[in-house]
């Protein structure tokens, strides 16, 4: 039987209010002593005189969710985490908006911070997600991630 994989994808940008709510929800988990949060924001890079106004994200969802499941298991194996939440945008996210939200929580700060960083690096490297950088004149180029 196919296991149910946790979805990480959201349509459009991740709203600041959603992030605030996510933090608020953890107030009942009083064993947590540290949260680490990474927010990826769409940057208005200038390429050959043209400015990026938005990134349009697509994914191979079935594979991405399987990969993410593997990352999640490896991270919980490696670090003493209480919980971890990941949200990645699909579709259009304008410059200045949030496209990636990674949230790790633990009893102590070190595992929370290290796990958060490792998850972000692995997401960028291993998830089949593509960002199309759209310029103001509607031309585009495929984004490349920096190591």
């Amino acid at each position: 039987m196919e296991k149910k994989l946790k979805n990480i994808f959201v349509r459009g940008p991740v709203a600041a209010a959603f992030i605030a709510d996510s933090i608020q929800k953890h107030s009942t988990q009083t064993g947590i002593g540290a949260h680490s949060i990474f927010l990826g924001q769409v940057r208005n890079d200038v390429v050959n005189g043209k400015t990026v106004t938005a990134i349009d994200y697509t994914t191979y969802e079935e594979m991405a969710l399987e990969q993410m499941h593997g990352i999640r298991e490896a991270i919980f194996e490696k670090y003493e985490l209480t919980c971890m939440h990941v949200y990645h945008s699909l579709g259009t996210v304008k410059a200045g908006e949030i496209s990636l939200f990674v949230f790790t929580s633990a009893k102590h700060r070190k595992p929370a911070i290290a796990a958060c960083e490792e998850v972000v690096e692995r997401i960028k490297k291993e998830l089949p997600v593509w960002g199309k950088e759209v310029f103001e004149d509607t031309t585009y180029q495929w984004k490349e991630n920096h190591p």
């Binding site: 990826g40 994200y57 994914t59 191979y60 594979m63 990645h88 496209s99 990636l100 972000v120 997401i123 960028k124 490297k125 291993e126 998830l127 089949p128 997600v129 593509w130 960002g131 495929w142 984004k143 490349e144 991630n145």
Partner: peptide, 10 residues
């Protein structure tokens, strides 16, 4: 079969 150019999520 999926043809996957370099990933660029995040």
């Amino acid at each position: 079969v999926a043809l996957l150019p370099p990933f660029s999520g995040g």
